[in-house]
Design a protein around this nucleic acid. Sequence first.
DNA 1: GTCGCTGCAAAGTCTTTGCAGAGAG
DNA 2: CTCTCTGCAAAGACTTTGCAGCGAC
Lengths: 158, 158
Amino acid sequence: MSNIVTNFNSRTVEYEQLLTNFKELLKKNSLKFTIQREVILETLYNSNEHLTPESLHALIKKKFPELKTGIATIYRTLSLLEDSDMVTSLSFGASGKKYELGAKKHHDHMICTTCGDITEFVDEQIEKRQRNIANDLGFEMSDHSMQIYGICKNCQIK
Amino acid sequence: MSNIVTNFNSRTVEYEQLLTNFKELLKKNSLKFTIQREVILETLYNSNEHLTPESLHALIKKKFPELKTGIATIYRTLSLLEDSDMVTSLSFGASGKKYELGAKKHHDHMICTTCGDITEFVDEQIEKRQRNIANDLGFEMSDHSMQIYGICKNCQIK
DNA sequence: GTCGCTGCAAAGTCTTTGCAGAGAG
DNA sequence: CTCTCTGCAAAGACTTTGCAGCGAC
């Protein structure tokens, strides 16, 4: 798969770092670094969207048809990545479970109920307030997520 | 089912109101008011927890064994209630989809990752900030939800 | 070489649907 | 009476698992 290797040359430092972390994680758990796992990580990294196992599978099939990656491997790898906190899953109403790389900076989501588009944002004021609330309730906060639902600019115009 | 009728006598005004709304909703859509639908609404109202279709079913089976309510009816009624915005569904990681009555005042959730317990809270500061953010991004906000994950007081002690 | 990984297909879950009889309006 | 509901069981959708051969180390 020389074209995968070539691809790496154009990767950002950020991706190289991510890949290194992943390899370390695997090594630490005596797991193996396989082309499938690499392709999944890469595809997640290159996608700006939040992917379902299904859509990840479709993307990979399209980009690396010769790999014949099975959906089971996608599920297995996503679980692995999620367990290791390298990806985060979100689930919205009917649209199922979606995954995104968790290595990115923390952010919240604004979801358009018309077109399903997801916009990310961060607000330090809210972040701070969340920490305070958890504290007040005696909660040892490990994570949090926030979603705002509504109709995005584009869909309002239509 | 006279015992159901009797139960209503001890209901709060709030529940009476909820029931009236439900009946109106049904009438408006030429749907029928059945014992099953009533029992589902009542059980949701009386439960302080966030219920899965499964657990709702179990609760109803236990409380009204003579009804033999099918799980399919639970699913159908929950969809109906959700479509009409009378209940809200939340989905967390692996624990599946949980429902709660949406007639309650808006609130956010703090979820214990150890015992799965859910604590509700509201913070006006965050609520306000959310409105501002949606506004800034040109979003017409219809709803939002926020979850804080962590370890609750109880589980920290154990 | 060893032992984990993968694709495939089969098995599980969870949820939805078709149908015939029951029941609300 | 009519037309929707319901329970049941069968069908679907989505995930997980078992297995035999493959491939990383």
